[in-house]
Nucleic acid binder design. Structure first.
Lengths: 199, 199
DNA sequence: CAATAAGCGGACCGGGCGGTCAACTTGCTA
DNA sequence: TAGCAAGTTGACCGCCCGGTCCGCTTATTG
């Protein structure tokens, strides 16, 4: 589209600084941190932040877009894995590990208004659906589970651990493991409600 | 302590109106709704709200305290139930059903500063620990699960469904069911991380 | 090295928030 | 029913937030 000439060296560095500071700040203190705090953490002025990202939501969207794209790629690569059950578990592990601490709600909050994020998210969701379908056909997950279910449950381990004050770093793995056991065919009980259509 | 004379009739009614309006508003639109909106929904002035609740957090704490107390009572009653596994599931069902939609984070957010809420929460947690212990001894849940695990997972069904745009009313039951299957002994895989000590 | 445009920063703005207050209304009681 | 304490109200306050703007700095380039 707009053939934009490359960023000046310092500007490129500052952009990276801002993205990193914002990611940390969002992760540690939630989506409500002020842009002033983010800029301060990056060691830059507030004006600089707004030169790089027109709005606070755009900054959030840039971070989320990165992560979703990375996840999408991981998902696609895992489609060729030998063990479909292990592949799905691996995907969920990467997904939960990538978004540390409390930046769980990233997926929805940012996508509301940004078309790029929405599109990337849908591509990533498609990967998940395929992973789940493969795992189901292989008997690695129960028959009554859908991709939409897994997408919804994907962030739960992070959510759950965000409520323990000084959580040890790997605690989320415990809850991913429990939830994944709930997805397995062994000992599965019939589900009381059909899955949602949307995601 | 302070022998306070009973509220005037209209004041008592308004207090109930405010609590109901706040509960609805928090549930529908999250904890960030303005006190002005809550007062408007109750059909009252903002000043009236602050006469009944010194601060917005106090209002939230009053709501949360009610719910936690109710949950504590349910938990204690279920301790006498014949089937410990069914009792635990019933408790989790009541817990998830009680806090509809997105008011999931009630437990932590409000208790941060309010001593009453903290105390009530700890009592309720004690009930959960007992329910889980009984269920474990009975073989209804896996041996490596603790009360703290269940407390953390308690709100997950609501959290998960809060991300589907127009969720059908009972959808949370699906995810409670999946997660509960993950708590059962059949098909359980060893957990990769010890449980947290705190709750 | 000089010229210049790209980048930077912080004072500033409008708006919305939680919370206050003094003038007004109303349920209770004797 | 008269008197008054209890209750109500919305205009108002100070604060902080996202976002703007313009004078200043600096990387780039011929």
């Amino acid at each position: 589209m707009t053939s934009t000439r490359p960023l000046r060296a310092d500007a490129a560095r500052n952009r990276r600084l801002l993205l990193a500071a914002a990611a940390d700040e969002f992760a540690e203190r939630g989506l409500d941190v002020s842009v002033a705090d983010i800029a301060r953490r990056a060691g830059l002025g507030k004006g600089t932040l707004f030169r790089h990202f027109a709005t606070k939501d755009d900054l959030l969207a840039a971070i989320v877009l990165d992560r979703i794209d990375a996840l999408k790629t991981v998902g696609e690569q895992l489609l060729d894995a030998a063990d479909p059950g292990a592949a799905l578990l691996e995907f969920l592990t990467v997904a939960a590990d990538q978004q540390r601490q409390r930046d769980l709600s990233f997926l929805q909050e940012a996508g509301e208004l940004n078309a790029d994020v929405t599109r990337a998210r849908e591509q990533m969701f498609r990967s998940v659906h395929k992973l789940v379908d493969r795992a189901r056909e292989h008997g690695a997950v129960r028959a009554d589970i859908t991709g939409a279910d897994v997408i919804l449950l994907m962030c739960a381990p992070n959510y759950v651990t965000s409520y323990v004050p000084d959580a040890p770093p790997g605690l989320w793995q415990r809850y991913l493991s429990i939830i994944f056991d709930g997805l397995r065919p062994e000992g599965a009980h019939p589900l009381p409600h059909p899955p949602p259509a949307t995601p």
